[in-house]
Computed example of a mutant assay.
Amino acid sequence: MPSGKIIKALSGFYYVLDGDKIVQCRGRGVFRKNKVTPLVGDSVVYQAENITDGYILEVNERKNELIRPPIANVDQAILVFSAVEPDFSTALLDRFLVLIEDNEIEPIIVVSKMDLASSGSKDELDQYIKDYEAMGYTVIATSSVTSDGTERLLPFLEDKISVFAGQSGVGKSSLLNAINPELELKTNDISTHLGRGKHTTRHVELIHIGTGLVADTPGFSSLEFIEIEAERLSYCFPEIHKTGELCKFRGCLHDKEPKCAVKGAVEDGVIPDYRYHHYIQFLDEIRERKPRY
């Protein structure tokens, strides 16, 4: 039986990439019975008499999956956050990072619209970039207008499935167009009334950029920590987890325990105040989460 990768799901059809051809498929009823929904990024086995009349027979095991946006087998997440319009937010970035880290997906931080930042805000952004690089993250400053930084991002996309994510209006589609102008992805400006971006992408689709596949998605429709337990949270903050290994008590959650190495590192300026503040904020949010039955 032939096999391929789902690169688009739309209106009940799954478009399977098999070599240099794309086969339009439907899912067999067995998937509904087994509560398995094929996702973009899935490696599948299918049968088809022609390229417009196929059926997916089997979904191979996934290495990871995201529900909102619905995509599987992601190698890395390109987290796009604009310098301005909307303003750069470490709180929102850290929320995205936690969700990506929890799914064991490699994150790359991209700061877009650097050409619009004032000299004062650029100094602040440069400090944030240094902070996140010190934590071990790759951070790339870009501008879709001047194309600055896009040449540095392109090698990271080669031979990988990448999902572009970030707040609406930060310029994800504009950035992809700057990398590959032939894409001609639809973009919209910031809504002056709402002060935030308008969604331009309506479905998940994998598109070729170089030798890689990139998902332009409608964005994360949920940023809640539904699956993350309190004990797991520190693993999603690399610098907190590493420092936490020096804590006096095993299983320290770094909030109320005495002689906590993490709190000491915050006081010494080794861990940025805002990162620890977000960690405690997220920890409280998880603790207050209503139990699921």
Rank of each mutant, 00 (worst) to 15 (best):
E224C: 10
K186E: 09
I140V: 11
L176Y: 11
Q167F: 12
K113Q: 14
I100N: 01
D94Y: 14
G29D: 00
V204P: 01
L175F: 15
L283V: 05
F81K: 01
E184R: 08
T201S: 14
Y293H: 11
S118I: 04
I286W: 02
C236N: 08
I280H: 07
V111N: 04
L185A: 08
P272H: 12
S221Q: 15
R28C: 05
M1A: 13
K256M: 08
T211P: 03
Y293E: 09
K5Q: 11
V163I: 15
V59H: 04
G171H: 06
S162P: 12
K290Y: 15
V40K: 01
T192A: 12
I280L: 12
V80G: 07
K130H: 15
G120R: 13
K160T: 13
T37H: 05
V98C: 01
V270S: 07
I109A: 07
D75Y: 02
S162R: 03
Y15W: 05
L233G: 03
G120Q: 08
M135P: 00
K21T: 11
V80D: 03
G19V: 14
E182V: 13
I22H: 00
V80Y: 10
S89E: 07
L17C: 03
K259D: 12
F96D: 13
E101R: 05
H278W: 07
G29L: 04
S43P: 00
S3H: 14
R152E: 15
I56H: 05
P291G: 01
K8N: 14
Q76W: 04
V110G: 04
V45I: 15
E158N: 09
L92V: 13
S222Q: 05
E104G: 06
G195Q: 08
D284Q: 15
V262Y: 06
R28D: 10
G169Q: 02
D123H: 11
G244L: 15
A215L: 12
I108G: 05
T52S: 09
K5V: 10
D159E: 08
E124C: 03
A91P: 00
P155H: 07
G166R: 01
G29C: 03
V139M: 01
L17G: 01
L92Q: 07
M114P: 00
S144P: 02
Q167L: 08
F282C: 03
G251H: 02
L206I: 13
E229Y: 07
N60W: 10
R250M: 03
G195E: 12
T217L: 05
L10P: 00
R196C: 10
I56Q: 00
S174Y: 03
L97R: 03
D75P: 00
N177W: 09
V163F: 05
I209Q: 06
V266Q: 02
S121E: 13
N34P: 03
I108R: 00
F13E: 04
R292H: 09
V170M: 02
F88W: 09
E133F: 06
Y55D: 14
K8Y: 14
S147A: 15
N180W: 05
A48D: 06
F156T: 04
A91K: 10
K33Y: 14
K35F: 12
F225R: 00
H241L: 06
L194Y: 06
L194T: 11
L283H: 01
I22A: 06
K198F: 10
L153D: 11
G269F: 10
I109G: 02
K21F: 14
P218R: 01
G4A: 07
L253V: 07
L194C: 00
V214Q: 03
E184W: 13
L283M: 09
N73V: 03
D53F: 10
T138N: 15
L176V: 05
G149I: 09
